[in-house]
Structure formats: C-alpha cells, structure tokens
Amino acid sequence: MKNPKNNPDSHYIHRMPYSFQERVVGTFILLAMIILLGLLLATGKTKYLFEDRITLYGVLPSAQGISQDNTIRVAGIEGGYISSIDISPQNEVIVTMRIFKRFHRLLREDSVASIRSHSLFGGASGGIELTAGSPDKPLLQDQAKIAILAGFSMDELTTTIERTLRDVQQTIAELSAIVTALHPERFSSAVEDMGRFAGNLQEISGRLAGGGGLLGAAIYNDALQKDFQEGISSLWRMTKEMEARLRQLEPALEGTEGLSGSIQQTLENFPALIKELKQTVVQVNSMLMVLDSEVQQLPDLVARVRLLIDDSDRTLRAAQRIWPLSRGISKSTEQPYLITPQPAHE
C-alpha cells in the first residue's frame, strides 16, 4: 500500500506533519467547545428569546427564598422569570418580574403573588407563584406593583416543629404531675382504715343478727338491765374506737381532698391538651409524609449522580487525548496501581 504522505494525488492534509493535523483538529474541537459552552450559558436566557413580555414589580419585606435564577409560575405554569432584585429607598425589596405576554390575561387585580417554598432536598425550586385572577376584574397593567406574600420557609417549618415538640413536652409534664399527686402510701393507709371500719360495722351487724344486741335482749333476755348496761358500755367502746379510727382517717381524707382538687384542675385542662396533642400529631404526620416523598427521591438522585460522574470521567479522559491538552498533560508511565519500588530497610 502506498504511503499517502508520498503520494502527490492524495489530499494535501495527508502531506501535512502530524502535529499540524493534530492542531487543526484541536482548533475545531476548541471552537466547538467554546460554542457549546456559550450555548449552554445562553440556554436559560434564550429559552424564551422570542417571547413578548410585560414587567411587574413585586414588593416584599425580605428576599428570602428567591433569587435572580428563579422562574415565575402563573397559575402553576412557567410564565416568566425574575430579572432583578433591588432595594427601594423605603428599604423594601423590589422584585422585577418579566411575565410572558401570553399569560398577561390571567393576571387581574385580585391575583395574588407568593413565594414558592423550597423543598427539603431541592426537588422543587424556589420562585414566585402568581394566581390567576377573576376574569371580571381589570387586568394588571404593565409596570404595575403587586405585593408578594412570604412563602412557607424551612425556618418556619423548623419553628413549627419546635413549637409542636414543646407542646408534647408540656403535655407529658402535666400528665407526670397527675401521677405524682397520687401518693401511693397515703392511698394505701386510707384504704386500710376503711377496711377496719367496715370490719367493725360487720361485727355490730353480726351481733344484732344473733340476738345479742339491745333489741334482741329486750325480747329474749331476762337480764335486760345488765345486758343494756353492757350494751351501752359496748356502744361506748365502739364510739371510742370509731373516734380513733376517724382520727386515723383524717390525714388520709385531707390528702384525698388535695388529690381530688388536683385531678379536677387537670381534668379541666385535659380537653385543651388533647386538642393540642391531636393538632401536633396531624402536623407531625403531614411533615413525615413530605419527608417520605423527598427521601424516596434519594436513590434515584444517587443513581443519576453516578451516571453524571461516569459521563464526566469519560469526557475528561477523552479531552486529555486531544490537543492542546494532550501536550500539557504528560502520559503516565507508572504501572497502574502498583507500589513504587521500596528500598530495603525502611
């Protein structure tokens, strides 16, 4: 086969030195890369290159949650973008919004502007949401001002969680107070005394039933006087005993009074507590649902990142073989993944 370098009929490029050929190819590649880079940078701006726009000025106290990269959604559809964020002499944040003209008819005087909240993992971007107004209301004019409502930020979410947790903590503390008020030793002493009292009553009723009492003796026993005296003295002893028992019961009854007061007070607060707890559970539940949906996106995100890294790796390796990078980066002469020879006695 004839060498194309020596063949006068071959294309002139084959007669050029290899380094020149390499440079020609490299120049084209560089040019292409620059253009592609330019296109990439311009994509965001040129996406709606031919759209006619109107300008609205949004006023809000803080620019938290928005930036110049953010888009504007009109009734949930991407309908514009934020072109600048400035501060007014009154220290208000003025957001200049460019709205595509085809969405203009949706923007009426009752349209509401609000900041879209950021999702936990950046699943949805921040920006401004404009609601469609009532068709019977007048259109918002070009250059008009509109107040923007602050969105639900991560800080607020954190504050809500914190408040919720505090409520739960307070509920637990109050429940704990109820349990503490129930002194088990006092309760057991009161029950014991009541038991004795009931025993004595049982003894009396037994005597009556057996005819040993005053009434029985009045009917069947001749020695009524004697029995009556004994009965009186027995009644006397019983009264004394009852008095002693009642004295013993006194502190227990006092304790019961305090306990019942505390229970009553707690029970009064109980409906409110239960209501708060219910609200807390609902909030936590909705928060967990949001978290769950975000976490479900994670494996997909990781897989995508891996693909991206692989692609970048391929691109970088390929780029290293192209002039002028191929000149700048020396080819590795090292054996791959081999320890450099180690001298003896280290």
Binding site: V25, F28, I29, A32, I35, L36, R314, A318, R321
Partner: peptide, 14 residues
C-alpha cells in the same frame, strides 16, 4: 457552526 464543528469531535470514547 456547532453542527459543522461537531463532526470534528466525533471520536471513539474510552
């Protein structure tokens, strides 16, 4: 330009 120059960067990927 991108279309024409793009032809020059078609090389087998590692």
């Amino acid at each position: 330009i991108a279309t024409f120059t793009g032809g020059c960067v078609q090389a087998p990927q590692p």
